[in-house]
Each structure stands twice: as C-alpha cells, then as structure tokens.
C-alpha cells in the first residue's frame, strides 16, 4: 500500500496499482528556468516555473494525454521525463528505477526503453542522412546489431511495420512527404524496442487525411508492442480519440486528470470546461446547439504568474481565497482529479 500512501500527490496511482507497477511515475516534478537580464549583466532576473509540482503515472500499454495551450509546460514535462532537461526537483521513476539518481551509463541504458517522436517531420530528420541511416543510428549508438547486414534487415522490418516500402531506406528525407517523414520518425523511435514513447505534437503538423493514417499507425503499434505513450498535443479531439487518460495543464500546473471519456463528457475544472467549449466540432447542427461562451483574457506571462491559483484572473468561479491558496489535486470521483476547491 505504500504507493497509495501519498495518494493526493500521485493521481492515477489507484488505477496503476490495479494493473501492477506503473511503467512510469512522475512525482512532484518541478522545472524552473532562470532568466538572466542580458549578456552583460550577471545574476538571475526572474524565474520561470515552466513545470511546477506535476505528478502522474502511466501504466504499461496506456496512453496518457497531456494537453494545454502554448507555454503551459507540456513539452518541458516530456523533456524532463526523457532527461533531456535536468529537473529542478521531483522524481521520475521508470520501470522501478529513479532516473534522477542514475549515473550516466545507467541512464543511457534506461534511455533505450524510452523514445520520442517530434512534431516537425522536416527539422527532426537529418537532411544529409539517408532514411536507412537515420533509423539505424540509434541501434549503432546503443551497440545493437553491430553487423550492418542485420541492421539493414531490422531497418527494412521497421519501415514495413510503419507502413513504408523498405526501398525508402535509400532515400533522403526531402524526397518524402510530411506523412512519410513522420513514419520515418516513428520507425526510428521504435528501433530500440522501447516500452515508452513521448509523442510531442506528433501529428500536429500533418493534414487531416494523413493525420488519420498516422493516428491509426500509433494505435496499431501500441497494441502490437504493448507500448505506453505520453501524448503531448494541443488538439483536443485527437487527444480524446487516442488517449486512455488525459491530464490538463495550465501555466506549469496540472489542473485536471481523468479518464478520457470522463474528462470530455464531464469536465470539472473551469479551465478544462472553457478549453473544451472553445474547440469547434465538425458538425454544424451540433455547433448550433452549443453555447459559444468565450473565456476572457489571455494566458498570463509565466515570468510573473498570478498568486494562489494561477487560473484565478480568468476564472468565472474565483473567490477571494483563490488569490492566496494554491489548490492541490483532489480526487472527486474515482480516477477524476481536479485542482479547484470550488467544484
């Protein structure tokens, strides 16, 4: 029961314990960046709390969606999990090991099991490398399939798993379309047999018809290889479709976390509600019946965030105490966590 002891801090723990040990556990993650005044002056001018006290778990075979608007810290959270960014505080426990304590060698071994797919299929592939070399490079780096023949065989296999003809191996990225390039990025992420993939806006740059192809590919791969995804995106319709559970971030903090269908049919946090109302649904009859209330104001600067609950200046439910107290996540229904004392 030790995993449930800090239940208020580890949303999702109950579900994860049902399915055994969670694959990934993020505990009280903080990532604060220091801003300097300029190149000539020393010393910190301001602190940006890009990620502030974020906790969640991901089970084996599960997709957790992480949504929020630009600058809410969703990408930074993903980068901290992969240790591309050293977190200011907090723990990242992956397959039972705390990554924040690991030495370089041990960390690199763990990294084989965690991969990333980036948003832009144009800038995330080296334009001077052939597709075969791009997909084969992680295997080379980690010393798997030292024999070139074997490696090529594996690359061909990965390409066909991702729906590309193995002859693409000899092409350069510029000879391919956006959708094909994104498939190459996915094949590269799969090359080391990962258990966990961070998909950072992995389908956002693609056109609707191509996006659907890649979404289906990601779903098929998850089933085939029992993968877990952290799916970071701003497109809420895609997140709802692809994710088992969804976490909503606002200005570096988690404001709500619930099962996907529950969150989308019964959002509780006023920010989540406003966010969902803002998304247009591709059906004119449905749209005619929806209330088109517009949330006032814009996202405040993370350099000087509002006191107390960061959402209070835009919140329709805000009362005086919201300006002082930082709300913690509460489990209002089994598995449905909300950081708002007013709901």
């Amino acid at each position: 029961m030790s995993a449930v002891a800090g239940a208020t801090l580890q949303p999702g723990a109950s579900r994860a314990t049902q399915a055994g040990q969670p694959l990934l556990e993020v505990r009280n993650l903080k990532m604060h960046f220091t801003m300097t005044r300029g190149i000539l002056s020393r010393g910190a001018a301001a602190k940006i709390k890009a990620v502030d006290d974020v906790s969640f778990t991901i089970a084996r075979g599960e997709t957790l969606g992480l949504v929020g608007e630009s600058g809410c810290g969703k990408t930074t959270t993903g980068r901290c999990i992969l240790h591309l960014e050293k977190p200011t505080a907090g723990e990242i426990i992956f397959e039972g090991q705390n990554l924040t304590n690991l030495g370089r060698k041990a960390l690199n071994e763990k990294r084989e099991r965690m991969q990333v797919i980036f948003q832009d299929p144009y800038s995330s592939l080296n334009p001077r490398m052939k597709v075969g070399a791009i997909i084969g490079e992680p295997m080379k780096v980690h010393g798997i399939y030292r024999n070139q023949k074997e490696r090529e065989k594996r690359v061909a296999e990965l390409l066909s798993v991702c729906g590309l003809n193995p002859k693409f191996m000899d092409r350069y990225p510029h000879e391919m379309s956006g959708g094909q390039r994104q498939r190459v990025g996915i094949a590269r992420a799969l090359s080391l047999n990962p258990h966990f993939i961070v998909c950072d806006e992995a389908v956002s740059a693609l056109d609707v018809s191509i996006q659907a192809q890649v979404i289906n590919l990601l779903e098929n791969l998850r089933e085939q290889f029992n993968l877990s995804y952290l799916f970071i995106a701003h497109d809420l319709s895609v997140v709802h479709h692809l994710c088992h559970r969804v976490a909503v971030m606002y200005l570096g903090r988690l404001v709500e976390l619930a099962d996907s269908d529950e969150l989308f049919s019964n959002p509780l946090h006023p920010y989540t509600q406003a966010l969902l109302e803002a998304v247009p649904i591709p059906d004119p009859d449905v749209e005619k019946q929806r209330a088109h209330r517009v949330m006032k104001g814009e996202i405040p600067s993370p350099i000087n965030p509002p006191s107390g609950c960061v959402f209070h200046p835009r919140c329709p439910l805000a009362v005086g105490s919201c300006q002082q107290e930082v709300p913690g996540l509460r489990e209002l229904k089994p598995g449905h966590w909300v950081a708002c004392p007013r709901v």
Binding site: V208, S209, Q211, A212, I215, L236, S237, V238, H240, H241, L242, S260, D261, F264, L276, V279, I281, P282, D283, V286
Partner: peptide
C-alpha cells in the same frame, strides 16, 4: 475528410 477527423463529442 469527415471520417478522418476524430470527434470529441462522441465516445472513444
């Protein structure tokens, strides 16, 4: 096109 877009008003 209409079949390619996920809809958040329908169950997953």
């Amino acid at each position: 096109l209409l079949r390619s877009v996920p809809r958040m008003d329908r169950p997953r």
